[in-house]
């Protein structure tokens, strides 16, 4: 084969690769747009339903129905706001702003946010820290967001009665810290596991954005860490964030 032919083949191959990459990008963009559109359409349905409840409630002077309708409008608005924030976290390149903090402080702020949801479902929280004042260098806002997403999922996964979520933090060795969130639900179904971190995939029906776990994964990767999922000792799911101990690395 002459050198000219080799060059031509290379040209062709690189052209094909370029086209493939372009097509793959278009497909990915299309899937993302479809996912966003799907989520927003669902919530527009919620808001429209709320409008109906408010308007018909006003006509009937039915305060309970007006309240229901207004709650639907708020649910829809909150969902869309949440979706936009998660999209920005997921698709924007960011560098963690590291600061030292005790994991107790981060977990407590997560518990504060989820207190009413957990109470509504009868879920109790347990926190296991080794040592009690365990701390680390993390982007506090991002790590809080990651734990919040995991804990929010954990509440949804808990059984209707005696739900229990355990949070933990431990220095797994001299160089890493592990944070975990586990529930006592039914665990992760084997057919679901491969799709867990796929954007817009959700098992929560039409009320899930499908962006919670991809956001957690991105935050963990930005911390040069690893996110693992699997069965926990309570029989439910356990998500573990393993990040390097930057303070130990110096």
């Amino acid at each position: 084969m002459s050198p000219q032919v080799i060059i031509d083949e290379r040209k062709t191959r690189s052209g094909a690769e370029r086209i493939m990459t372009h097509q793959e990008r278009l497909t990915a963009i299309g899937e993302t747009i479809a996912g966003i559109a799907h989520s927003i359409k669902n919530m527009l349905g919620m808001i429209k339903g709320g409008e109906y409840q408010v308007e018909s409630g006003l006509q009937r002077e039915d305060l309970a129905r007006i309240r229901e309708g207004w709650a639907m409008v708020k649910t829809g608005n909150q969902f869309i706001a949440d979706l936009v924030l998660k999209m920005l976290t997921l698709y924007r390149d960011t560098q963690p702003a590291y600061e030292e903090i005790t994991f107790r402080e981060i977990i407590d702020s997560v518990l504060m946010v989820l207190k009413s949801k957990a109470k509504e479902k009868g879920v109790r929280f347990e926190v296991h820290l080794e040592p009690e004042n365990i701390s680390g260098m993390v982007d506090v806002g991002c790590m809080r967001e990651a734990l919040l997403n995991l804990a929010d999922n954990a509440i949804d996964a808990c059984p209707a009665e005696n739900g229990c979520i355990k949070f933990g933090a431990v220095h797994s060795n001299g160089l890493h810290t592990e944070l975990y969130v586990e529930d006592n639900g039914r665990g992760i179904a084997p057919e679901i596991e491969p799709r867990l971190f796929e954007p817009f995939f959700t098992t929560k029906g039409e009320t899930g954005t499908g962006l919670g776990l991809p956001v957690v994964q991105k935050i963990v990767e930005e911390h040069q860490g690893v996110l693992r999922s699997g069965p926990g000792p309570q029989g439910g799911a356990r998500f573990t964030i393993r990040i390097p101990r930057r303070e130990a690395l110096g």
Binding site: M46, G50, Q53, E68, M72, T207
Partner: peptide, 16 residues
């Protein structure tokens, strides 16, 4: 319908 608020909306439309 699993979403209780949306179910209430559909219910209202028909019950009305």
């Amino acid at each position: 319908e699993d979403q209780s608020q949306y179910a209430r909306f559909v219910q209202s439309v028909f019950e009305d």
